[in-house]
Design a protein around this nucleic acid. Structure first.
Length: 712
DNA sequence: CCGGGGTCCATTTTT
DNA sequence: TGGACCCCGG
């Protein structure tokens, strides 16, 4: 097989060891994806299994898509439809469609998104007279999510675990939440796995069916699995024992979301006669970068341990640089970027990886003034946008009348005069009669509980939905979606809207409608959208990337900037307070992930003064900086020794006097209309020396240099 | 149904 | 510091 020739011996070993449990411990940049895809192709090529007999699991849709493409390519363009290759959630969801009745759902159940889940728990908390200000619904839903991560159904929660939150009613709330979901014929993300585990544990015949089907199981990013995912895999693998997991314990950074590093650390004990193959040849980074990363991660106690060997040579030292404050840091990074540009590095080969998103703004502002093109990763996703969620709600109610959450969302959108009082009355009736909102509306419209105006509006809306529903059979679904958005007045609402964003929203809606054409039916589209819909990145321009360290996992760049390496920020204080040593070790893994994203150059910075929540605080360099091996780094600092004298009070004056003015030397005034060569027109908000804060009509608020601005 | 003003609060977020 | 949320007055 010629595809084996390009692999090193450890990789080849991992590809050819097909039977029995196998852990591939794949360090950063050691060709993990390549091993996984080649192995899959190898199983097929050696006729050990047919495509339908393989189960391949990833965490992200992106990873799943990439894997499909690469395997298909290796197999000479073999079609991948119908393969059991996807995310945990997509695969479990697909199984659950077939067996939904075993957990009291019907197969057309809806998958609710985190936003709906939060609204649902909030409603329940209010019904239970829990003060939702003191007990944030966000926290309640997080508790439930964490329980689900550990495969704990309400009956398995101990009083101790539920603690005092929500007047000690969390267990009951969890039960009510699950009941409510069942009534709604809905699942949240965690349920997809949890229900399947329940089914496997209570219906041996169903489990047998999958045992017969799946001869080989492969799992990517195993270090990020939670208990539920682990149990699901274990149940599926217990017969064939042919399970191959790939991962890196040093890159486990989602513990706060329920991931258990323990799963990968324990693999040998969990699966008898398991083999471990370590991939330690690194094809990505220079040895200096690897030494730096290794020096940091070596301080962690709980790890399997491996040492990366660069196949690229020593390279440059990792730069460590201290600066006065965040502004100086952004300025310095900007200068380095300009210098690298002059050396011929593409913008798209440079990235700023921050610990927390609030740190992004300072870089954005600086890049705007310097005209460095950049892209921020981590804004709201396509399907999280208001207009998309609204449109989906219309489609969901059309497809499934009893989807209460969707119906509630659009009942008064666009405004129809159905205010809070009406909705509350409908809900009260629904609850007492134990019926859905949809039924409740029909019933109440036959009484005179509601005012005639509301009754008419509701009846007309319900008739609209009936009409659209009837059209599902006869009208192609993208066309139907267009009709719905039109006839409901939703599209009109945005067309009439004069705000800056409305044009973008209309375009998003059009994009949604055209995206539907890729699916066979409305139902199939809705199934897909809940789990998979992503913002399409049609932005191929050459830009510097600004993103969080978490977002950067799996990516690589020539040059990586790692700002904010300060105690309290990185490692994050909260992480350490809440999770102690475990938290600190996860932060350290984050540092490891950050450094190993770099191919050629890495720049670590820290500042002496960081502004957080509006006040200035002194900062000391992160302990991770001390952990960097001296001979792999080159250290310098702009911080004047003088600055060390006035610390400790916690209340320092701002580093620079800020004198507010209302007019610039050239006569531009606050409130005046101006024009910028790349951002278009806007209004001056604040004047700060030669810098202006301007609200641009199309781009929002930005800080720019006066020299680029002219009055309109 | 809207906007003004006060208050409270702050990480990371694959599905 | 600034954004999200809520209450109240028009």
């Amino acid at each position: 097989m010629n595809y084996l020739n390009s692999l090193n011996s450890a990789q080849k070993d991992a590809v050819e060891n097909i039977d029995g449990p196998l852990l591939v411990l794949a360090g950063a940049g050691t060709g993990k994806t390549r091993v996984l895809t080649t192995r899959l192709a190898h199983v097929l090529n050696t006729h050990k299994a047919m495509p339908g007999e393989l189960l391949a699991v990833t965490f992200t849709n992106k990873a799943a898509m990439e894997m499909k493409e690469r395997v298909s390519h290796l197999m000479g363009g073999m079609p991948v439809e119908g393969w059991w290759l996807g995310t945990f959630h997509a695969l479990a969801g697909r199984m659950l469609r077939r067996h939904a009745d075993l957990v009291g759902l019907s197969s057309n159940y809806t998958i609710i998104d985190p936003d709906d889940a939060q609204r649902l728990i909030k409603q329940l908390m209010e019904v239970n007279s829990i003060d939702v200000k003191k007990n944030l619904p966000k926290v309640a839903i997080a508790m439930i999510d964490r329980w689900k991560d550990r495969a704990l159904t309400p009956d398995k929660i101990t009083t101790e675990e539920a603690d005092d939150f929500a007047n000690g009613k969390m267990i009951s709330l969890y039960t009510q939440y699950q009941d409510r979901l069942k009534t709604l014929n809905a699942c949240d993300f965690g349920d997809l796995l949890l229900h399947m585990i329940t089914i496997f544990q209570t219906h041996q015949d169903v489990l047998d069916q999958y045992h017969r089907r799946f001869r080989y199981i492969m799992v990517d990013e195993y270090q990020d699995t939670n208990v539920a995912q682990y149990l699901w895999l274990r149940l599926l693998a217990q017969k064939s024992k042919n399970i191959c997991v790939v991962g890196d314990d040093d890159q486990s950074i989602y513990g706060w979301r329920g991931a258990e590093v323990g799963n990968i650390l324990r693999f040998e004990q969990d699966f008898e006669n398991a083999r471990i193959i370590k991939l330690e040849d690194n094809y990505r980074s220079t040895q200096n970068i690897l030494n730096a990363a290794d020096g940091v991660i070596a301080h962690n106690e709980k790890r399997l341990g491996k040492t990366l060997r660069s196949q690229k040579g020593t390279g440059d030292n990792v730069i460590v640089h201290g600066l006065w404050d965040g502004e100086a840091e952004a300025r310095w990074v900007g200068e380095q970027i300009e210098q690298l540009q002059r050396q011929g590095v593409n913008n798209s080969e440079m990235a700023i990886l921050v610990r927390a998103s609030f740190m992004m703004r300072e870089f954005e502002e600086r890049f705007i003034t310097l005209h460095i093109p950049y892209r921020v990763i981590g804004g709201p996703r396509f399907y999280e946008r208001m207009e998309i969620r609204d449109a989906l709600a219309y489609l969901r109610v059309t497809a499934q009348p009893h989807d209460d959450l969707a119906l509630e969302r659009i009942l008064n959108t666009p405004k129809r005069g159905l205010g809070n009082t009406t909705v509350q009355r409908l809900y009260d009736h629904a609850r007492t009669a134990e019926i859905s909102l949809h039924e409740s509306i029909w019933q109440l419209c036959e009484t005179d509980d509601l005012k005639p105006k509301q009754r008419e509006t509701l009846l007309s809306l319900m008739k609209d939905f009936e009409r659209w529903r009837a059209a599902i059979e006869t009208t192609p679904h993208p066309e139907l979606a267009g009709i719905i958005l039109d006839e409901s007045g939703y599209m009109e609402m945005w067309k009439a809207d004069k705000s800056v964003e409305s044009q973008g929203r209309i375009e998003n809606l059009k994009e949604l409608v055209s995206a539907m054409a890729d699916f066979e039916s409305l139902a199939q589209f809705l199934e897909h959208v809940a789990l998979v819909m992503e913002a399409q990145e049609n932005d191929s321009a050459d830009k510097v990337t600004i993103m969080t360290l978490h977002g950067a996992k799996g990516l690589e760049f020539d040059c990586v900037f790692l700002p904010g390496w300060e105690e309290g920020l990185f490692p994050s204080q909260r992480s350490m307070d809440e999770n102690g040593l475990k938290g600190l070790e996860e932060e350290r893994r984050l540092a490891y992930v950050g450094l190993t994203r770099a191919r050629e150059r890495a720049f670590v910075t820290h500042v002496a003064n960081r502004r957080t929540y509006g006040n200035w605080v002194n900062a000391i360099p992160s302990r991770f900086i001390e952990e960097l091996p001296e001979d792999a780094i080159e250290s310098s600092s702009d911080i004047q020794p003088r600055s060390m004298h006035w610390d400790s009070s916690g209340f320092n004056p701002a580093p620079k006097a800020f004198i507010a003015r209302t007019e610039t030397a050239n006569g531009l005034k606050v409130g005046g209309r101006v024009k910028h060569p790349s951002f278009g027109e806007g209004t001056i908000l604040v004047i700060d020396g030669n810098k202006l804060d301007i609200i641009f009509d199309r781009m929002g608020r930005k800080r720019v240099l006066e020299s680029f601005i002219e009055a309109v």
